[in-house]
Write a protein that binds this DNA or RNA. Sequence first.
DNA 1: AGCCCCATGCGCCTGCTGATCGTCGAGGAT
DNA 2: ATCCTCGACGATCAGCAGGCGCATGGGGCT
Lengths: 221, 221
Amino acid sequence: MRLLIVEDEPNLGQQLRNTLEGAGYAVDLATDGEDGHFLGATESYDAVVLDLGLPTIDGLTVLDRWRKEGRSFPVLVLTARDSWSDKVAGLDAGADDYLAKPFQSEELIARLRALIRRASGNASSELTAGDVRLDTRSGKVTLGGDPVKLTAQEYKLLSYLLHHKGKVVSRTELIEHIYDQDFDRDSNTIEVFVTRIRKKLGADVITTIRGLGYSLDEPGR
Amino acid sequence: MRLLIVEDEPNLGQQLRNTLEGAGYAVDLATDGEDGHFLGATESYDAVVLDLGLPTIDGLTVLDRWRKEGRSFPVLVLTARDSWSDKVAGLDAGADDYLAKPFQSEELIARLRALIRRASGNASSELTAGDVRLDTRSGKVTLGGDPVKLTAQEYKLLSYLLHHKGKVVSRTELIEHIYDQDFDRDSNTIEVFVTRIRKKLGADVITTIRGLGYSLDEPGR
DNA sequence: AGCCCCATGCGCCTGCTGATCGTCGAGGAT
DNA sequence: ATCCTCGACGATCAGCAGGCGCATGGGGCT
């Protein structure tokens, strides 16, 4: 999963980045409204953390523009404490959740997880396909009840596929959502991780659609 | 399905081509208005992606000419952000949809899919004929509920026939819409793929109309 | 030490070709 | 009118080449 943080205060921004990368997300960071808007418009994010007080363009304006342009990723707005007017305005502009500053990183992570889950149409925090079960809260994966140890990248890949169960996911799309901005687009890393996941969870979990990408399906009887 | 991209900026053009070919379309690319107009007037496309700012002839002029010449393919116009005058002018000239630059590739694909679907008069993203069901979103085909594995070309051919259900489709037409510009016109590839599809989905799905082409019909009893 | 990424070589599948066989229909002879 | 013959078109098959995805090992970084 890949996130965009729009935060002008350098310390807080860097701290957010560290926290969220530590939680297993690929993170892009924008430090002003214009840059933030551009990134959100061009790149593919699974969620956005947006501070309101920003240079060049105000946070609410950025959000408003995204929505008018049809961007539908979930947005979590950071507000100053007790700033009710901000909350109302944010709601109108299409924000999905709020967090008052200061806040604890655990809470931010939990809320983002919920946002991403809801955006993919999943009610529960557990994603399953056949015998495979992934708990997004604890970050643990089991196969038929037995715990399986996945590395960070393996987990990210599997998680993205589970969030888009049934859909065909191209290699490009995977790269876009698992890595952040600067990454060499043509390499066979994705294939390598698919291979490794198959080794740990069984070859039939991930289906290859030649020329198009991969797909993770509920095993038809 | 075959697309025409008219885009003067080389990088963006090539990137578009890659994205759309990755999504399973046959793609022709024109880099200026004159070339673009010529291709659109002479070749057969299922949809066109048209940038407005073009050398030699302006994009709107190209669109206008096509419409005056009776070309009816759906056209998606790429506009600069917030350029309302362009939108209005484009609407007058007969554009079918807009996308503001910059944009995300997934959105472009989704919109093109919708355009092509609407152009063929289908309301749903699912195409059916008898027991055969094709979902254009997930790219999957089922026969009486059971999933069927089709190769890329088989899928393209079936998809085109389903989009033109009931109509007689000549071999030339199939070649024009499944392959891009440079393709050896006299070969029996189409027949080969028809054979293979029949093997997988049953011989009666595709009817042969001798001397004219093929037709895919709802099995009327 | 573990994990991630890249490079290389291999093997299978796909897509295309060319050849052969089958089928349909028109026209002529009976 | 019926049957036969012939020609054209379509179906099918086997074979080939190229491409794509897979596996593996090594190097670099944490």
